[in-house]
Amino acid sequence: MNHEGLTDLYNRFHGPNESAADIQTLRDLHVEMDRAVAAAYGWSDFDLGHGFHETRQGTRFTLSEPARREVLARLLTLNHECHAEEVARGLHDTKKGGTRAKGAGKAKGRAKQAGAGPTLFE
C-alpha cells in the first residue's frame, strides 16, 4: 500500500512520465468510466481523445480539447431541452423573467420556520 493522499495520487496520474502499473490501471478506469457515461447519454459518435493534454492547470490526462468542447456543448443543449420541458409542464415561474422552480421559495421558508440549519444551497 502506498499511503499517499489524493493530491499526490492524482499528481502521479497526470504525470506523463509516470508509468507505474497502479497509475495505468487508474487511467484505464477513468477512460472506461468516461466511455460508460458517454454511452449512457447515447454519445458514441465521437472519440473522447483520452491522453495527455495541455490545460489551464498544466498537462493533464484527460479528454482532448475538441472532445471536451463537444461534451460541454451537448450538456448545454441537454440542459436547455430539459428546462424547456419543465417550462412546458409549468414547473417554472417565467412571468417575472425568473426561472425559479415553483415552490422553491416556499420550501426554503418552511425550513427556516422549522428552525432548521442552512440547506445545501444556502
Score class of each variant (00 low, 15 high):
1 M>G: 15
2 N>F: 07
3 H>N: 13
3 H>W: 09
4 E>W: 09
6 L>P: 09
7 T>I: 13
10 Y>H: 12
11 N>I: 09
17 N>S: 15
17 N>D: 15
18 E>P: 03
18 E>K: 03
19 S>I: 10
20 A>E: 14
21 A>L: 12
21 A>M: 05
21 A>T: 08
22 D>A: 14
23 I>R: 05
24 Q>V: 06
27 R>M: 11
28 D>S: 15
29 L>T: 09
29 L>C: 08
30 H>D: 07
31 V>I: 15
32 E>K: 15
33 M>Q: 12
35 R>G: 10
36 A>N: 14
39 A>K: 13
39 A>H: 06
40 A>R: 07
40 A>M: 04
41 Y>C: 10
43 W>G: 05
43 W>V: 03
46 F>L: 06
47 D>G: 05
47 D>P: 06
47 D>I: 04
48 L>K: 02
48 L>Y: 04
49 G>C: 10
51 G>F: 03
52 F>D: 02
54 E>F: 00
56 R>A: 15
57 Q>E: 08
58 G>A: 05
59 T>N: 02
61 F>E: 02
64 S>R: 03
66 P>L: 01
67 A>T: 04
69 R>D: 12
74 R>S: 08
76 L>S: 14
77 T>C: 03
78 L>N: 08
79 N>R: 14
79 N>G: 13
80 H>Q: 12
81 E>F: 01
83 H>P: 00
86 E>A: 14
87 V>I: 14
87 V>C: 09
91 L>A: 14
91 L>G: 15
92 H>E: 06
93 D>K: 11
93 D>W: 02
94 T>P: 09
95 K>W: 10
97 G>P: 02
98 G>L: 04
102 K>D: 04
108 K>G: 00
113 Q>C: 02
115 G>C: 13
116 A>I: 02
116 A>F: 13
116 A>Y: 12
117 G>L: 09
118 P>Y: 04
119 T>Y: 01
120 L>M: 07
